[in-house]
Write a protein that binds this DNA or RNA. Structure first.
Lengths: 194, 194, 194, 194
DNA sequence: TCCTAAGCGAGACGGTACGTCTTGTCTTCCA
DNA sequence: TGGAAGACAAGACGTACCGTCTCGCTTAGGA
């Protein structure tokens, strides 16, 4: 079903703005960007910007959500034999490798910390679900599930951010292997506490 | 040598400003505070503020550095038999427990992410030093030291922030034990890779 | 010759817009009306508005010129024995009485001052012509013709505007009589200065 | 009593803004001036403008009121033997002659019509008072006082505006004499209607 | 009866001015 | 002489209108 032309125009404008933001983040960092910078680069009127996005952060998040949807696609496309934190992370590193530029802007340090809470909500759900299904029925509960999830999530994002900010010195598979070596021993030792 | 009265006045003003900032962070979060808010609460003139601090972030960091110095004192006072990541972390959790209010403001989520990079620099030095001295002379180097340091640091700060933002539901010793359970297996397994 | 239907459509749209403007002026005054207000009320597209009129003022003037043409018709239909300022004014007051609503909008105070200069140009021609033909060949020229014209014109428009803004408390003939009482003595005394 | 220096600074800024407005009105007319134009010329920050005046019109009126106060001073200083419409008008024409520049800006056609209603309120009081005290006890009431006042006021402002916009081709005394010749016969004839 | 061109609505868009808000500098006064 | 008070320049913000534009829908009048 072909879209209405109007819709295509709208999409074009949104894309122009998102692209401008990405380029500007890579140039001078998220915090120091003004709305004027963005619309100048996108050749877009001020009111047009505000017709599409509430403010700079809203624009940022729209790009971030795009990335997330795209990531979901990848995840489904891969359909790994088992979804666990380390297959999830592999897909993420690979995805980041493919879309370096956008990832560096939105997830790297120049992108500010806006994305942290959003990423956390998303990742924690996936990770927590996996862990819950592998928990022994009764365990000593020294470490609550919430903290174990937090642990895995924070290790993963730290690695991801570091990897992006250092221009991905390893291929996705290798950095993911490090992630596995860092977290798997701990996770297994904890899950097996009878 | 007695300080000049003037110096005491200066100290008083700096303290007033730092206290205002802490109170305001707990009330409405770091980002949404304006310089006007701070000086109104401190009953201080605008020019006075800028006589002492470059800007809001400078004030924040001055408080943060106070905390760090105080922490160093604690650390020396404790003089643990061995300084390793887990004794360091214990002192930190205990320190945070003692100065809850300031920690919640400066390290908790309401304090923004300004402190992250500063805390990282500080912690990474301590942690890295410990690791280096325990590294086997030749190892397979699958995981570089920098990443291992990052791993420990990010786990610690995640735990600390979570603990503060959830009103410290465990005593310092217990949350530190969780930290140990999360990181020690991994660290040891890595360090022993011949 | 019957007009093309297309032309009738065009006329209808123009009329819709003029009517909207009149209604809106009476409601909230000329200055505070936006083009959006006008086209919303007329159920007309934005581009349609600009296809017919350059801007809000152009629309206003188009209505004003309509009124003027209509007034010319009246003037011819009356064919007063002599056209002088006071027969002219009588026709005007009568015309205004008949088309109260439009006059209040376009000439009253809510209509702004746009019409003043246009009305002035029109009236001054009529008045000036009359005066010139009654001037004594040589007079002391203490008061130039231009000023005498201005005097009559400004008195007439002041009375007209006042009359409209006060909901026409007198019939046209009576307010015109006041106009005559106010201006005729002066005009005659001046014209007769040998 | 010397004013506080702060007050002098404030006065200076207000004056700068008023002067800018006058200069700009003479250059391009009131309507087409933007706040940015004003503050650029005055070398004043945007927020400073709004700290002193609500908007462009407020600035205009502040200048207008200055003029009025000054005019009152003149009027008192002159202390004419009798205050009637024609001595009042003489002082006004003389005052305008002295402060040509400001009058052309604030009362001339380039100044827009904002001042009309304000001037009217002021003048009508003076004129009305004079007329009331000269009314015969019982008269035929063909022309209400309000209209007679309006008549005098509108003639005076028409003359004043014309005079300013034509660069004052006559001295104040002569244009005032025209005003007298135009209005006095009518006023006397009306007031004497027994 | 169909075709075609014009009138039209809808509304996205670039642009500009608005009035508000915050920053960091500066000047003056007071204790 | 240091600090309080606060005026100020600078400039970003989000809003409101403007006048232009592109797009399809409708509809009349000629083929």
């Amino acid at each position: 079903m072909p879209q209405k032309v109007t819709d295509r125009r709208i999409q074009r404008t949104r894309q122009l703005l998102q692209d401008s933001l990405v380029a500007l983040i890579l140039e001078k960092g998220y915090e120091s960007i003004t709305v004027q910078d963005i619309i100048d680069r996108a050749n877009v009127g001020r009111s047009t910007f505000y017709a599409h996005f509430q403010d700079k952060e809203d624009l940022f998040l729209s790009g971030f959500e795009n990335l997330q949807s795209q990531f979901e696609q990848h995840l489904l496309g891969q359909s790994p034999s088992e979804i666990n934190p380390w297959t999830l992370s592999l897909v993420m590193f690979q995805h980041a490798q493919e879309y370096q530029r956008v990832y560096k802007a939105l997830v790297g340090e120049r992108g500010g910390h806006t994305m942290l809470s959003h990423l956390q909500r998303y990742m924690s759900a996936h990770i927590g679900e996996h862990l819950k299904s592998h928990l022994p029925v009764r365990r000593k509960e020294q470490i609550p599930l919430e903290i174990l999830t937090l642990y895995i999530y924070s290790t993963l994002t730290s690695l991801l951010t570091w990897w992006l900010d250092h221009d991905m010195p390893y291929p996705a598979e290798q950095i993911n292997d490090m992630f596995r070596q860092l977290t798997q021993p701990t996770v297994e030792s904890i899950l097996q506490q009878a």
